[in-house]
Nucleic acid binder design. Structure first.
Lengths: 257, 257
DNA sequence: CGGAGAATTGACCTGATTCAAGAACTGTGG
DNA sequence: CCACAGTTCTTGAATCAGGTCAATTCTCCG
């Protein structure tokens, strides 16, 4: 990954990082960033982006590696480039609840806020574009537009968390599973949303992680999946693959009476 | 639309004449606003405040009255002046989960975001200071500082929601109750935090509302309270009053092994 | 005092967890 | 390519925390 333009044609984004910038940050180039358009950076003009670019570093995370630990002074922000990260909360005796999932183009971190009480970990190998918190804050301070964009994202994240609170507090295991399958499909399966035809995709989470998202146990997740399989609503071709056979049936189960 | 009631108060105190929900308050000026310091407005200079003041209206909400409905286009923002509001999510068949509580000085609404999927209702009589969303957005757009302040508040709200996700997904009924009692005391009981001495205060929520916050049923809430009473951890003098007798015992139950 | 809503209490039931055993993958090295 | 070890996933049986249903009992007010 270097600064050559044009490998990936992202419309008009033709900033040329100056050679000395390339040297100093050889692995951090925005022009061919896969999430340029969808990330928070999407709000920036090319000139602004090139300023921000100087503050960022790319970083690889191996499966299981943490980007932030609950309780520690948070010192960084980041955009997710590839892979999926989990944001999780833990009780003193080790029970875990995943309180958020971060997909490519999502933003992590809380500029202007001191502490971050959650742990952020890569579920599989991942790449992120990190900023020192103070740098990022400085940058934000001069761009109301970007602050606004981050505010909007945060509102969305909040709504998502609240929707999940309803799920955790009031929905049955089967409703939770149905919801999870649909949500995950919409997020990663792309929008081959078209009709109701069967769709197959790989779940990006292990059964254990799904349980931690849904506030269930591994066994319950597994049983509910088999139940759906037996009912002919989904198929489980093996591994982490799922085929949604009757999408409308799933949708009906989401909020059932 | 808004009939001007021209009793000249300080500067341009324009207030809606609809007597029912939008009343005129002789003290309806920011200068003697009870939550001036703690609310989002606390970030403003006097000059800015006086500009914002022209955009706001005070409004009384009677117990049970809604400020926003899930699904409807959100058209307002507000600061809570007095009383407590709930933010709640509902399933199709009527199960309810309270996903947030709003106390005086809290901000409600999502500027720059179209839809709001939750219902906001006054738990008891309440007063709020409302703004038309577009007005508020306009105001925010010219003040990066205030946008930042709102961003911080939103991060805090998000952290709170996530903490509650852990509670809903992974904690037992007794842990939930212990947590709720302590949190509520800290929020309303003021910080007579001092020692571990017994403290008495009124719960601002009915048993039913507590159940909807904690993802439990009324009966379970009631049973857990009696259990705590029998154990000598709290006393229930009657009505909605609670006395915390052994605060450290409660604290230990919060996250127990 | 009396009546309505709120809270408590009891008896029973059920959905999800727990504990325990196998089966199916995944990757590694021979 | 296969064997093997370490996971992860599935399935079964027993248990239990919390929910449901059904009475009372409080509390608040007119």
């Amino acid at each position: 990954m270097d600064a050559r333009v044009g490998t990936k044609m992202l419309d008009s984004c033709t900033i040329l990082a100056r050679p000395d910038d390339e040297e100093r940050f050889p692995t951090s180039v925005c022009t061919d960033c896969a999430v340029r358009r969808d990330s928070l950076c999407g709000t920036l003009t090319d000139a602004e982006l090139s300023r921000l670019h100087r503050l960022g570093r790319r970083r690889r995370l191996r499966r299981g590696e943490a980007f932030a630990w609950a309780g520690e002074e948070s010192r960084g922000c980041a955009n997710v480039l590839s892979g999926i990260l989990k944001v999780s909360a833990l009780t003193a005796d080790g029970r875990e609840q995943i309180v958020g999932l971060l997909y490519p183009s999502d933003f992590v971190g809380q500029p202007f806020v001191g502490s971050f009480e959650f742990t952020v970990t890569a579920l599989g190998d991942a790449e992120i574009c990190t900023f020192r918190k103070s740098d990022f804050e400085g940058f934000l301070s001069t761009r109301n537009g970007m602050t606004q964009a981050l505010l909007c994202r945060t509102f969305d994240t909040l709504s998502d968390a609240r929707r999940r609170m309803l799920l955790l507090g009031r929905q049955s295991a089967s409703e939770r599973i149905a919801d999870f399958l649909l949500q995950t499909f919409e997020r990663i399966g792309g929008c081959s949303a078209s009709s109701n035809g069967p769709v197959t995709f790989d779940l990006p989470l292990s059964r254990g992680a799904i349980a931690d998202v849904l506030g269930l146990t591994i066994e319950t997740v597994s049983r509910q999946m088999t139940k759906l399989k037996v009912a002919g609503v989904i198929a489980l071709p093996g591994g982490r693959a799922v085929t949604i056979l009757k999408r409308d049936a799933l949708r009906r189960m989401t909020d059932a009476a």
